[in-house]
Design a binder for these strands. Structure first.
Lengths: 241, 241
DNA sequence: AAGTGGTCTAGACCACAAG
DNA sequence: TTGTGGTCTAGACCACTTA
């Protein structure tokens, strides 16, 4: 195993932890100098990898003491620091996300149900409006309302609606996503989603509103996802410095 | 300005951006080599600072192009990557968090309303149970139910309940917090909070359940915060790699 | 005193975007 | 081709914990 980069090293360390060949009985990993020679990387790369593991809740480090594996506990939550789309993230936990129904149509920006906070659209800007109902392992999981700037993405094939929209964008030359602003809140479940989820209108709903930007900083899309409050749980580890 | 560390540099860059002396008309910052000489730091330290700014939504970088300031938009949301307690974070947005009522009592672990997912307590372990009602700028904001391991923190002065419990713990030698697991979900508002918030029982509520660990990995406390869904909004920037 | 992780310096090479 | 950010190497010094 020569020339591992930080991402590959993180995956390798996870694999070695799970195989039981890395941590001792106290769940303590070897010290950094030992890990550096073991994996043939410098301290920089090693610590980049360990930072990833820490953010995922796998390990933690204590100054002057050592690096430790955490007892597993990430069960069926969505990790907020995940990379990639929602479908890939739930797949990590062993579940499967499927799109039950989806529809798209071209509208004027003035007809959108909501807009990003700091937005300045041209008058007459066209948006591709998408509504999807999605299930997790056959259970009604979320309703999603999203708007893609038609000037940026041109068209969206119907097949992409039933797969991962995120992955579709990533595969295109012109729509590489750089960062996503996410706002998390709770709202009453709207009527449009209550039938699907078999919940009363006004029931609690976990709402994630996000704005996706290209690597160039250009706004690509904004959306609002209403999660079934009985199933959805987000997770993150906050480090105190 | 000599010998800035990454945190101080981040603050300095923010100040220089806001004073208008750093970015050009296109919101573009000087290239990294120029910033290095300007602030007299190496690239490592500079990029640590720029990473902080990116996570806070202040800036973004585009490979091969440059570093850019983002149009401000973090209005009245709670940044999930904040360091420190909730009171300090809302203060950043110009608001004030006050504790309206608070009470504590010593209970047995068997009598707690809820427990952490992966918990293994000694039988008879004692917990300090705390319930607080807190207002944001005079409006009912959240109800908090928390449990502190009495074997770890011994006692909590009543004065700390009306200030920042986080800051109190940080000031003690024995209770330096290292990381916090956070689960975010939505639940029906419980009766205990409905009067305070002037909302019906069963209204939506944004719930943050967290488990605070010392830098040694020892569990210190776990809690559940019910936010007023009409006021609370969490925010984060997700980077795609 | 010894060993651990936290931070920073200095420099190299690579990948990407624009002219 | 040039200039940008992305990644990695190598080594130093410091802060913290434990004995």
């Amino acid at each position: 195993m020569a020339h591992l980069n930080a991402n590959a090293l993180a995956q390798q360390i996870i694999a070695d932890i799970q195989s039981g060949s890395l941590a001792d009985d106290q769940l303590k990993l070897p010290a950094e100098p030992e890990l550096m020679t073991h994996y043939q990387v410098t301290r920089y790369t090693l610590r980049q990898a360990l930072k990833q593991l820490g953010n995922m809740g796998y390990t933690y480090q204590t100054h002057g003491v050592g690096t430790f594996v955490r007892p597993q506990q990430t069960t069926n939550s969505i990790a907020l620091e995940h990379n990639g789309g929602l479908a890939d993230e739930v797949a990590r936990t062993g579940s499967q996300l499927t799109t039950k129904t989806a529809e798209q149509r071209l509208i004027d920006v003035a007809d959108a149900d909501f807009l990003p906070a700091a937005s300045h659209f041209e008058a007459g800007e066209k948006l591709i409006e998408i509504r999807r109902f999605r299930e997790l392992d056959g259970q009604p999981y979320l309703m999603e309302r999203s708007y893609y700037l038609q000037s940026v993405i041109k068209t969206i094939p119907d097949s992409a609606l039933y797969d991962s929209l995120f992955n579709y964008c990533e595969q295109q030359r012109e729509t590489k996503i750089g960062f996503i602003d996410q706002s998390i809140m709770s709202e009453p479940l709207p009527a449009a989603a209550s039938d699907f989820m078999a919940l009363p209108v006004g029931a609690p709903s976990l709402v994630v509103q996000d704005e996706s930007y290209l690597i160039t900083g250009q706004l690509l899309a904004f959306s609002k996802q209403y999660y079934n409050y009985k199933m959805a749980k987000l997770f993150m580890v906050k480090k105190i410095h």
